[in-house]
């Protein structure tokens, strides 16, 4: 950590371009919804959704590392901040989504359309 009192202005604008580009790609894919991605299935959801989720995590990385300046924090402080939520959220989401799928499998057949 070269304690960033040097100016980062140029890097900030680059990150803005990256975040805007990613959002643009997301919206473009969301409007287009190409069938081979949209109608596919991988680990419980479509490839299109996986692309959205991965792009979102990339955006989150840029915001946290660059804007919130996590890259400049001491290694173990950064790890305390990053790994704690990743572990807890991963745990929660895995359990709840599995449970949601189970509820659908159980109750879905009882709903008449």
């Amino acid at each position: 950590m070269g304690h960033a009192h040097e100016s980062n202005t140029k890097k900030i604008w680059i990150v803005l371009v990256i975040l805007t580009a990613i959002t643009g790609v997301e919206v473009w894919l969301g409007i287009l919804k190409p069938d081979f991605l949209h109608l596919s299935n991988f680990l419980g959801t479509s490839w299109l959704n996986w692309i959205f989720i991965i792009l979102t995590l990339v955006k989150a990385y840029f915001i946290a590392w660059s804007f919130m300046h996590l890259e400049g924090e001491k290694t173990w402080f950064r790890r305390a901040i990053v790994w704690t939520p990743i572990f807890l959220i991963g745990f929660l989401v895995t359990l709840l989504l599995t449970e949601g799928g189970y509820i659908f499998d159980t109750l879905g057949p009882l709903v008449k359309w």
Binding site: P85, I89, L92, V93, L96, L97, G100, I103, F104
Partner: peptide, 19 residues
């Protein structure tokens, strides 16, 4: 962040329930 993920995970559960 944990609070928000609690809400979003609940949304996810409900969505999978009515997928």
């Amino acid at each position: 962040a944990l609070t928000f993920s609690g809400f979003l995970a609940a949304y996810g559960l409900t969505r999978f329930k009515f997928i």
